[in-house]
């Protein structure tokens, strides 16, 4: 797991707010994730200490619900389709281009957490293959150069 510095003090108001409420684990985790974008281990340890809920229980809950991320995600989400049509049209080349161009691996993020790359399967636009989604925006007929350019143009 990547260690990033987080300001643990940011969750103090949340822990204060829910101090008297029993069973408030989920809202605490939700609010914590709102702050950091994911659930950093340091924050989990702090929540465990202050709430008295064991760290194992916290992770048991956090891993149960689809909403919670235990790993940081980049500011920008890049999704490349590797469905059949996109695959034969060179989706793998796009993946390699993004991996090399932004110092990350598929399924992960770059060290600065600017970008997260996900592989998805068939977005139903095979006629425009290969397809990529950058922050939800669809790009069709993508090339290695064009996807890198599109990503670099993000703020």
């Amino acid at each position: 797991m990547t260690v990033t510095d987080i300001d643990i003090g940011l969750i103090e108001p949340i822990l204060q707010e829910f101090r008297e409420q029993k069973g408030a684990v989920i809202p605490i985790l939700q609010r914590t994730q709102d702050i950091y974008g994911y659930l950093p281990e340091d924050a989990m340890v702090e929540i465990s200490k202050k709430s008295g809920i064991s760290i194992s229980q916290l992770y048991g809950v956090a891993t149960f619900y689809a909403q919670f991320n235990l790993e940081p995600r980049g500011r920008h989400l890049i999704q490349i389709c590797d469905g059949t049509a996109c695959h034969v049209k060179g989706a793998q080349k796009l993946v390699e281009a993004v991996e090399n161009g932004f110092d990350l691996e598929a399924g992960g993020s770059d060290p600065d957490f600017e970008y997260t790359l996900e592989i998805v399967y068939c977005l139903g636009s095979c006629g425009l293959a290969p397809i990529a989604l950058v922050d939800g925006q669809v790009y069709g007929n993508t090339t290695a150069d064009s996807i890198v350019k599109n990503i670099k143009e993000l703020d």
């Binding site: 064991s54 194992s56 229980q57 992770y59 048991g60 891993t63 149960f64």
Partner: peptide, 8 residues
């Protein structure tokens, strides 16, 4: 409570 079920 050192043990819990993780994921689902």
């Amino acid at each position: 409570e050192a043990i819990s079920v993780f994921y689902r």
